[in-house]
Every structure is written in structure tokens, then in C-alpha cells.
Nucleic acid binder design. Structure first.
Lengths: 123, 123
DNA sequence: TATTGTTATACTCTATAACTATA
DNA sequence: TATAGTTATAGAGTATAACAATA
């Protein structure tokens, strides 16, 4: 948890956590406002505000769903995708600069631990 | 980071993160308002509000510093100490219920990983 | 009628600036 | 003068309730 806090503090300088969270949700496909709200465990109005903020930054765009007029489809813009890649790169760089000081054996332990934690998390 | 998020979401039901953070700072000794603000990287006024909230809950108390009249010394009350122990126990319980399903070898890997991450964090 | 999304309203957190008291 | 803490004010996040549009 301490490591998570350090990485978050480091990358929060660029974009607020709740904005970043939505960008990562949109990385591979567009989603509706309700899908985004549910996955972030946030209310509908809160997600409306967050989407507004991201739209003002030109990181996401809204479009209509041809199959269901009630839906608002939120997609990443090229600018949003670029920002997402940059923030991810910063997080990776933080970790990479520390990992390069470790031995191969220590790296193996961390990789194995990540696998175990992944298993724990899925239960 | 996913694990940290899960544990935090779980225990945030009981007490807000910024309140919990101050309680943990006071676990072993009292601190001044500025010390608390600096360690949480938060402004003075924000910390004043947080201390007010904790005081209303009877989790901390303010007292004067005999050596320096400008200081306000913040200490954990018995009620605050009790709450801190309970929240910690909940966090531990969340993790313990998952760890007990792991093999001895997997537990050893996690312990070793914790040691490595601790080393990374101190740099 | 139920669902999706937005607007209205209120609460809580945050910060900076201004103030009081003490060193 | 500088430091510790509080109060004043404003900005940004959250939630619930009420509403419009669509299914």
C-alpha cells in the first residue's frame, strides 16, 4: 500500500485519480456513462461531472448509441489516448528506475508475488 | 495497486482515509498540527479541519505545549486508539482470510517480496 | 413502468490569503 | 520578523432527489 501511495502521488501531478481511472476504462473500448460509473463505484451525477471535465480537456468525446437513444457513448479522443500513454509511461518509469537496481533473483520473486496477488484478488 | 484499492475500499466504510491516516500517525506518539500536515502533504487549514472532525468524534484531543505556546499537541484518546485497532484488525482480517488459502511456499514468496518492496520504498 | 443521463442542491474535502498569538 | 495554528473564502469532488427522454 505504501508503494501504491508513492506511485499515485507521483503521477497525480499530471491528472487527477478519478480522471485517470476513467481514461484507463476507455483504453480498449468506448463505454456508456453508467458502465463507467458502476465500475468506479461512483454515482451517475458524479460520472456526468467527470465526463464533462474530461470533455473540456478534449480527452474524451460523447456520441449517441444508434441502438438505444438513452445511452451516451464515451470514447477516448486521440489527445486522451496520448495523455493516457504518457501517464502510464511515467508510472512505469518510476518503477523501472527502482527495479533496475535489483538482482535477477529479486526480480523473479517480485514477478512470482505479482502472480500470487493476482490470484488472491480474483477470489 | 489493485490489492491496495480493494483493502482501502473495504475499510473506508468505517472511517475516511484522511482521518485514518492521522490516527496512524498518532499511534505511537502525539504530534503537532504542522507535523501531521507535513507528513500527509496537506495544508495547515485542511489539517485543522481534520483534527476538528476527529475531536468531534472523540478520537483525538488537543493540548498545549508547555515549552512552546504556539504549538497544539494532538493525542489519541482511548476511543481513538480503540477505533484504530479495530480498523487495522479489519484490514488484517481481509488479508488473512485470503492468505490462509496459500501454500507455505507462496507465503514465503510474499514475505520476501514485501522485504524487497520495503527496500525499494526507502530509496 | 423501468432505465439512462442530466440538473438541482447540499455536504465535505481541498487550497490560498489574511489574521491572531507566541517565539 | 518568523512560526504555529485558525478563520475566511472559493473551488472541486461526492451524494441523493427530481427531472427529461427513451425503451
Amino acid at each position: 500500500m505504501r508503494i501504491a501511495r508513492l506511485v499515485r502521488a507521483d503521477s497525480s501531478a499530471e491528472i487527477a485519480p478519478h480522471l485517470y481511472s476513467v481514461l484507463t476504462q476507455l483504453e480498449h473500448q468506448p463505454r456508456t456513462a453508467t458502465q463507467l460509473a458502476d465500475r468506479d463505484r461512483v454515482s451517475g451525477p458524479a460520472m456526468t461531472r467527470t465526463i464533462n471535465a474530461l470533455q473540456r480537456l478534449d480527452y474524451v468525446s460523447r456520441s449517441a448509441d444508434p441502438d438505444d437513444g438513452r445511452h451516451v457513448i464515451v470514447s477516448l479522443t486521440p489527445e486522451g489516448a496520448k495523455t493516457l500513454r504518457r501517464v502510464k509511461r511515467n508510472r512505469d518509469a518510476w518503477m523501472a528506475s527502482r527495479l533496475e537496481k535489483l538482482s535477477d533473483q529479486e526480480l523473479t520473486v517480485l514477478a512470482e508475488a505479482a502472480r500470487i496477488l493476482h490470484k488472491i484478488q480474483e477470489e
